[in-house]
Computed example of a mutant assay.
Amino acid sequence: MEIGNLEKDFDGRLLIRGNTKHAMRLTTFGTRVAATAQLCAGQLGDLHGPRHKPKAMPR
Results as ranks from 00 to 15, higher is better:
41 A>P: 01
40 C>W: 04
46 D>K: 09
11 D>S: 12
2 E>D: 14
38 Q>R: 15
35 A>R: 11
38 Q>H: 08
35 A>C: 06
52 H>F: 03
56 A>V: 09
21 K>I: 11
41 A>G: 07
9 D>I: 09
17 R>T: 14
20 T>D: 15
58 P>S: 09
56 A>K: 00
28 T>K: 14
30 G>K: 00
35 A>S: 12
59 R>N: 12
9 D>S: 07
55 K>H: 03
44 L>I: 10
49 G>M: 04
6 L>T: 04
5 N>R: 13
53 K>H: 06
5 N>P: 00
29 F>M: 09
50 P>Y: 08
40 C>D: 08
43 Q>A: 10
41 A>L: 09
57 M>T: 04
2 E>G: 11
28 T>A: 11
31 T>A: 14
54 P>K: 01
39 L>P: 02
56 A>L: 03
7 E>P: 00
19 N>T: 12
20 T>S: 13
21 K>G: 03
56 A>E: 02
3 I>W: 09
51 R>E: 05
51 R>W: 05
6 L>A: 03
57 M>I: 05
19 N>F: 07
38 Q>N: 06
48 H>V: 02
36 T>F: 02
39 L>I: 06
18 G>W: 11
8 K>I: 05
56 A>P: 00
32 R>K: 14
44 L>F: 06
41 A>M: 10
57 M>F: 08
41 A>T: 14
14 L>M: 13
48 H>P: 01
43 Q>M: 13
9 D>G: 03
28 T>Q: 11
19 N>M: 10
33 V>I: 15
34 A>M: 12
24 M>K: 09
36 T>L: 07
8 K>N: 13
14 L>W: 01
51 R>G: 03
28 T>H: 09
36 T>Q: 14
